[in-house]
Design a binder for these strands. Structure first.
Lengths: 148, 148
DNA sequence: ATTGGTGCAAATCCTTTGCAATAGC
DNA sequence: GCTATTGCAAAGGATTTGCACCAAT
């Protein structure tokens, strides 16, 4: 089976879950499938609405737990754009985001750029950038020392 | 008066407010002064506690409104680190942030870096980075066209 | 005197928690 | 059968809103 079909079927998720001794549930499969069907990042609420088509009764806590799990497994990405609700995205390639101050829409900015040229790259796309925030996530020296 | 004293006294804020026909209130002056006194970014709650020392009775809505105003005036910066509460900072120089997954502390990363070398820069500071999110804020092509 | 700014209380929005019921292994 | 996962209801934290009062111009 090709990588694309494997992903479409969620076979990769099944394997990751088995490797960790976690259960394969229909909620997990459907949520990942829905996330992959989308071109664009979606809020938890948008995903929930779509998921309930296929799996009525899916609950909010399950959705959040599953999204967190998918992020942990590297199958999804969480984007905190500062617009209230967090966004989720199954795109794993390196890319950044642009948030419109007015309409709140989020646009992709593909590839790896020099930080100082990102505003220019955005401008080429017609986006009038007035600021950029980069947040690095990880473990500080103290916590890394304490845990490892 | 030197630029430093001007800032310490909030004279720059006074001028910006007058230029916009907005009122100079003690709340606005005290909140900016408190923000400038700090080395590190602070949450709204932390700022409120400190401000109430100088100006008891200061309210939460006023605090948020003032912080938003300061950001709009370019005197402060809002950092959405994805840790629940937003952070505010009176540092205007270009710098980025690192968030510890465990203790939640935020560390500064000064200067302008190449995006792909930021993880290395963080590593040099003992920070074990496992991801970076860059969010560009501004106006999308559609909104820019509609407004200008 | 005018009206922008403030404080209060309550509402809203997003997300997490506690717990009993259910479904994978 | 065992226990992780689920759904429900309710709680939680951060921020915003509506409105009457106050204070800067």
């Amino acid at each position: 089976m090709s990588v694309e079909n494997e992903q479409a079927e969620g076979q990769d998720l099944v394997e990751l879950l088995r490797a960790r001794g976690q259960r394969v549930t229909s909620q997990r499969l459907v949520i990942l499938r829905e996330l992959r069907r989308r071109e664009l990042h979606a809020t938890a609420e948008e995903i929930l609405d779509a998921v309930r088509h296929d799996l009525p009764g899916t609950s909010i806590p399950t959705l959040y737990a599953t999204l967190e799990l998918l992020v942990e497994l590297g199958l999804a990405r969480k984007i905190d754009a500062g617009t209230g609700a967090a966004l989720y995205d199954a795109r794993t390639e390196p890319h950044q985001h642009m948030v419109c101050r007015d309409c709140g829409r989020i646009f992709d900015l593909d590839g790896e750029y020099r930080l100082e040229s990102l505003v220019d790259a955005a401008k080429r796309l017609g986006f009038v950038a007035d600021g950029a925030e980069l947040v690095i996530h990880g473990r500080c020296a103290d916590c890394a020392a304490r845990i490892n």
